[in-house]
Design a protein around this nucleic acid. Structure first.
Lengths: 123, 123
DNA sequence: ACACTATACCTTGCACAACAAGGTATCTGG
DNA sequence: CCAGATACCTTGTTGTGCAAGGTATAGTGT
């Protein structure tokens, strides 16, 4: 079967759209309570049917960035059975950052929605 | 005065959010009819109150990309008075691409909206 | 005439996030 | 004891938005 639209090229768009929104997403998930990295990766895939899937190689740098920015605190937990997990928890600064990003996201999507609605009205 | 939140750092987020959506925006504007580059830049700033502002140095590469992909055709117009303008017009392939990007945008924003709504329901 | 601004196009180099593709170490099931 | 799952991490690549430069023409003011 010939691939007319070459779906592998399409991947690029998804990749770009995720830019900048990943931090918002992670902060939001953490606002529901503590979580560890691998958990966030699987949660994201499940809860969005793959629409916001990320690889762990993408997520860990995000978490490190958030930690360095003081948005999250880190706690290692080594259970008697099982692999050690690194738990992340939102700080007050992190909550503020979350609200700020939510606002920026809303502003942006509203502007997009307004623009994309435009011609259907004016023509 | 001390800049606690350093607004110049915030610019980064806007920049990232635009990623991938710029092509969609440009294709959409062109779906309303022919336009030249400089016109698109000013239109974008005006119609979104700066929320989707781009510099011309950003737009021209986008237009070139679209041309190379066969999404637009180009026509120079040199009026008796005034600077020559390069007009862009959507091709059939461009319209298809536009529809496709609109779908991807919708899928993405819906997934985001669902995720961001989540905790308010479940807790 | 001359300077200045606005219009309109283009190019180069940088920054930086998402990802693929590698890696390590520990635990569990057969 | 070995395969797979869990859980973490790192390096190199790629694409895109942008700043900061550039060119050329037309209009305005003095």
């Amino acid at each position: 079967m010939i691939e007319l639209h070459r779906p592998e090229e399409r991947k690029g768009i998804e990749r770009e759209l995720k830019r900048g929104s990943l931090e918002l997403i992670v902060l939001h998930l953490l606002s529901q309570g503590e979580a560890y990295g691998y958990e966030i990766v699987t949660k994201l895939t499940e809860q969005t049917n793959g629409a916001l899937e990320v690889t762990d190689g993408t997520l860990y740098p995000v978490l490190y960035r958030l930690e360095r920015a003081g948005a999250v605190t880190v706690r290692w937990e080594t259970p008697e059975r099982g692999v050690p997990r690194k738990y992340y928890r939102l700080t007050t600064a992190g909550k503020e950052e979350l609200h700020h990003l939510e606002e920026e996201w809303t502003t942006f999507t509203k502007a997009m929605a307004k623009l994309l609605r435009q011609d259907r009205e004016s023509r």
